[in-house]
Design a protein around this nucleic acid. Sequence first.
DNA 1: TTGTAGGCGTTATCAG
DNA 2: CTGATAACGCCTACAA
Lengths: 338, 338
Amino acid sequence: MAIPPRGPTVSVKITDVAAAAGVAPMTVSRVLNTPERVSTATAGRVREAIERLGYVPNLLAGSLSSRRSRMIAAIVPNIGSPTFSDPIQAFTDVLAEAGYQVVLGLSGYAPGREEALLRTVLTRRPDGVLLTGAAHSPAVRRLLHDAGVPVVEIWDATDDPIDMLVGFDHAGLGAAVADCFAAAGHTDFVVLAADIPRASLRRQGFLRRVAELGHTVIAEPMLPTPSTITDGRLALRAIAPLLGPRTALFAASDHTAFGVIVEARALGIAIPDRLAVCGFGNYEISRGTDMPFTTVGFDGAEMGRIAAKGLLAQLSKVPLLSPRRILVPFEIIARAST
Amino acid sequence: MAIPPRGPTVSVKITDVAAAAGVAPMTVSRVLNTPERVSTATAGRVREAIERLGYVPNLLAGSLSSRRSRMIAAIVPNIGSPTFSDPIQAFTDVLAEAGYQVVLGLSGYAPGREEALLRTVLTRRPDGVLLTGAAHSPAVRRLLHDAGVPVVEIWDATDDPIDMLVGFDHAGLGAAVADCFAAAGHTDFVVLAADIPRASLRRQGFLRRVAELGHTVIAEPMLPTPSTITDGRLALRAIAPLLGPRTALFAASDHTAFGVIVEARALGIAIPDRLAVCGFGNYEISRGTDMPFTTVGFDGAEMGRIAAKGLLAQLSKVPLLSPRRILVPFEIIARAST
DNA sequence: TTGTAGGCGTTATCAG
DNA sequence: CTGATAACGCCTACAA
């Protein structure tokens, strides 16, 4: 198979377009970036030349010169679940609309990875940075400070954001779920969560409130990461012998909650009478099946949108009158499992 | 709330480091890029200066000068499902290992969007491009050709790849599923798929083979995009009256297959006796529940890995002896639903 | 092993 | 509204 020919090694540059259109390079630049400052006639000639030559501007050069990369770096643990893909999708859409491109960095949950990724990405001089969570190493904070770049943290709430923050209070959410169960008369509790930042906060908030209410924690098994349906099933099977006549279970993800419900059915544990279940995420699995279950819902896409708008406001030098710390709401959506 | 101070507007550059270390800028560059060409002693001094000044290299300038951006552009429809997130995750990991960063472009399924995205991303002079699918407009092909950049297409198989291709034959896959059903004695068929590129190919391959075998297609409803569990349920409810004593159904996604199975249970349609179901994807939902179902599995991550390695080979100027068109296998995983 | 000169392709800035 | 000039920060190429 013949190797397909690669295009003209000599790529078209702004001077070529300028020559072809009979104008100065600067005029071509203006046609591209500030068309309102160019007469319609010349703009037309320039556009024609651009089209004819197949000119694709070199943003590396442009960014170097203008000190604006029109790029935003987003660092998230992963993109495989709606947890992060919803906000990122919305974030990307809003910024694309405004002419910015989002560069994703996938950090996983390995400590130290965030700093390495951030360092790598800062190398490309992003105009803004989105970080997931609010727990960041001093090194990360220093890098961001020195870079002098607007930052938005999402998904967590903390009292001292680096710059802007859009998230919610996961510990408070866990407590709210505990309250909700308690209000229904529950006194025996189980919590299922993986040992990752925000799930841990939800678990802790839940446990603390249960303790405050003087109720009992029957079990609090730690799940692997990422948690699957099967993990939920296995967890319930493991703790089934401990279950009393009436137990309330909070699963820190809808996937594991679904696993719990599937397994309860298999074990003949009546839901919600003997076991009440609340998940987290309001993902489709929580409502799409014949056993819709109670969960905590929130608008991940909206979080991404707000984060994007916050960055855009800073980038347009608007002094950002709005608060730098925005809490988005969550909601306990009661369904058949409680 | 006081606005937190932004770092030193005067950013540290390579000349600052050079001065601090008492060497020429070029030596600093070497320490960073080709450390083996610098004596251990000077490298140490330079590293100390870098550390002390908090120097973060400017890759915009570096790329402009070296004509290598160390960046790969990946254009995918979305990242919300394992369909694309698995390959992309693996692709990203392999390339990161080699010092490349992946920039994601989300194209959705809107026609024309791919070209716009590609044009935007080429502006940053990526060293390579990953495209999803094998159907691309002439404009896209021209852009890529003129850019003179290595390209890898994933997810589809076609006879004339732009450059490299890693995928599988979706129409053949559909036919294989039909064969599998036919081998089990089925003569009445249903196919469920959304009107999006690869799902359509699977549907067509399935339908063609059913026709070749002289069997009957009872229904072939078109699903919305993206297809959900609920869509599967609604689809089955709609066609339930048409079902004979024994029907085989191919759902072009595991989500909809699961919906079909949930609804069949609700409607009292016996699986697999009255309705045999095969999904696509081998996602966790196909095996995590108490009703594991037959599906078509493949290794999305491996596809991403192969694509990354192919690009890396080209980037290292290795003339790429391996084939430019790699088909990855798929497998029909028989479970309780057939 | 280290240094010097020049240019990568664009845009800020100021002048006309 | 348009143009000339000088950076932007780094790396290729060559020289010492």
